[in-house]
Nucleic acid binder design. Structure first.
Length: 288
DNA sequence: GAATCGTGGTT
DNA sequence: TAACCAAGATT
């Protein structure tokens, strides 16, 4: 029993946000949709899209019955639209091979498109109360600070880090689930990447990083993604036009979004390759 | 292991 | 204002 458990669990009881995918009435599908949407995307932006998504597609089979293009359109501006395709593909597998029920085991979950280690552990834990180590960016940061005494964890998950997280995971599955969501919440609201609110932290007096005097990060430089002029920006522009159009679009409308022609053509080809866009006739393109 | 993949709020 | 960063997955 880690000394961290009681204060963190009590803090969560008092400060947890009420989110639609939490609580006893949330379906496993609701949890799964939220987890895919929350990959690299802030809660505030996910909330309205998640609500509309669940209203429109209450079960995996409902989504699977739709075109992938409708999924991409409903995804809106959440970013990384391939996640919409993967969620649609996962829904199809669930409808066809899992009786339209989101599977509960980690092994079945991680076999689904778009579901990696974190998401499989999160769904198994938060939707079904299974006991797994849930290592997201928040949990990693909180544990790096509280246990290891460093400002940020290593660029990728290390064996020692996973072992340490397993070490502090409560034995009882239900408590472990609450612990994981509580640590995530603590990382999201208090133990933030920049300007952490240590004054509001329930484990400030147990924190190794604070005890060491908040030493600055001295690991390998953390990569900062460039944006202006990248293929990602170009792809975003192109897809935005299609998303906001009811039907197929003439190439001239895509041409207007990006001046660099070789890059524009390359990005359009990659969107087609990714099945986010389809060739819909002479000089015409559309969502799939 | 490193590169790639969107978007927009915050500082 | 440019940089930072947000419940990662895939190749």
């Amino acid at each position: 029993m880690s000394l961290l458990h009681e204060p963190v669990l009590r803090w969560y009881d008092d400060h947890a946000r009420e989110l639609p995918w939490r609580g006893p009435d949330a379906s496993a599908w609701s949890v799964m949709v939220s987890e895919l949407m929350l990959q690299q995307t802030p809660v505030a932006r996910v909330l309205p899209v998640h609500e509309a998504w669940l209203e429109r597609w209450p079960t995996p089979a409902d989504l699977a019955a739709e075109s992938t293009g409708e999924a991409v359109r409903a995804w809106g501006r959440l970013g990384y639209p391939r996640r919409a395709l993967r969620l649609h593909a996962a829904a199809t597998v669930i409808a066809e091979r899992h009786g339209n029920e989101v599977p509960a085991s980690y092994d079945e979950l991680i076999a689904l498109p778009g579901v990696g280690d974190y998401t499989a552990a999160a769904i198994a834990t938060f939707a079904y109360g299974r006991r797994h180590v849930v290592l997201d960016t928040n949990v990693r940061r909180v544990l790096a600070r509280a246990l290891q005494g460093v400002e940020f964890p290593a660029p990728s998950v290390t064996r020692a880090e996973r072992d340490a997280a397993a070490e502090v995971l409560p034995e009882d599955p239900a408590t472990a689930a609450t612990w994981s969501v509580a640590v995530m919440e603590l990382g999201a609201l208090v133990c933030t990447a920049s300007n952490p609110r240590c004054g509001d932290c329930p484990v400030a007096d147990l924190c190794a990083w604070r005890a060491a005097g908040h030493p600055a990060y001295d690991g390998p430089p953390r990569k900062v993604q460039t944006w202006v002029g990248t293929d990602r920006q170009c792809r975003g522009r192109l897809l935005s036009v299609l998303r906001d159009s009811d039907g197929p679009v003439h190439r001239s409308r895509l041409d207007a979004t990006w001046p660099d022609e070789p890059q524009r053509l390359r990005c359009l080809a990659s969107l087609i390759e990714d099945r986010l866009v389809v060739d819909a006739g002479p000089d015409t393109y559309a969502l799939p």
